[in-house]
Design a binder for these strands. Sequence first.
DNA 1: CTTTGTGCAAAGCCTTTGCACTCGC
DNA 2: GCGAGTGCAAAGGCTTTGCACAAAG
Lengths: 152, 152
Amino acid sequence: MTAMQHSWPETLRDCGLRVTRQRLAVLDAVAEHPHQPAEAIHAEVARRLPEITVQSVYTVLHDLTAHQLLRRFDPPGSAACYETRTHDNHHHAICTQCGRIEDVDCVHGEAPCLEAPAGLGMEVEVADVVFRGICRNCAAQNAGEHKAAQPV
Amino acid sequence: MTAMQHSWPETLRDCGLRVTRQRLAVLDAVAEHPHQPAEAIHAEVARRLPEITVQSVYTVLHDLTAHQLLRRFDPPGSAACYETRTHDNHHHAICTQCGRIEDVDCVHGEAPCLEAPAGLGMEVEVADVVFRGICRNCAAQNAGEHKAAQPV
DNA sequence: CTTTGTGCAAAGCCTTTGCACTCGC
DNA sequence: GCGAGTGCAAAGGCTTTGCACAAAG
């Protein structure tokens, strides 16, 4: 269940994609730090591949997403972020204070988690859920400083 | 339940906002055609207020949203859209083919529709759900033309 | 060697911001 | 008249696109 299906090179080739250092580096970076925007992914990748450009990161992210090797998630109001969990249905929780994003496993298994309302006029295939609230860290921090917390 | 709380001018004043033709026009436009992007709202408003600019529409939308007179919804991958239903909890269904957005009433009432998973590490306040699928129109259309439908 | 992918640069789309004029109150 | 709101214009952030060089198979 937690076993990796293939190694990245194999997975890439299975999609008819060539194996490049850039793609491997992006895949590694996203796997290790999910839910990061392209800018941050570039920063991380650039530590090992200094010549890589942000545009290439965008292109790589786009291509890998198109081939289902990555999943793109658009938090309302901020830049798109990416994750390697593409094959199991899960949702996301966003801390409204610090912006951190956590995965939320789908309790009902792989199928869409929610039964769509009856009279919808639409055949529902997927239900994406975004939970918003205050994460543990921020809650603790707020409790600490009793003063009006106005995080920037 | 479907009764309008106030008239728009009253509602605006209650928020400490001045009553302008632009704001009234935007409120009317959004009320009549919800889930439209700023560009479309501007087009509609401009039919009665030809001098209004897109930037003003953006500003008005921003201000009214900040005062809870409008609610902003960001469909992944497309421009933000707006609606006047701000006080009842509801969700959205997006047709992946034509992009149309429908409201989905929340079956559990006004509170967050979903119980957040237990070990989440986050105190959930809101759950926003986006259903995606094929709407009735598009389904019928697809059934009609049996050929591979590749809508642009 | 052929084809795909990258670096580089530029443009695109959606949205916000700054300032002077206008209008609501 | 005072202050908030609009028109106008410009910039901003995020992302995509086009083309020549480099790398993968």
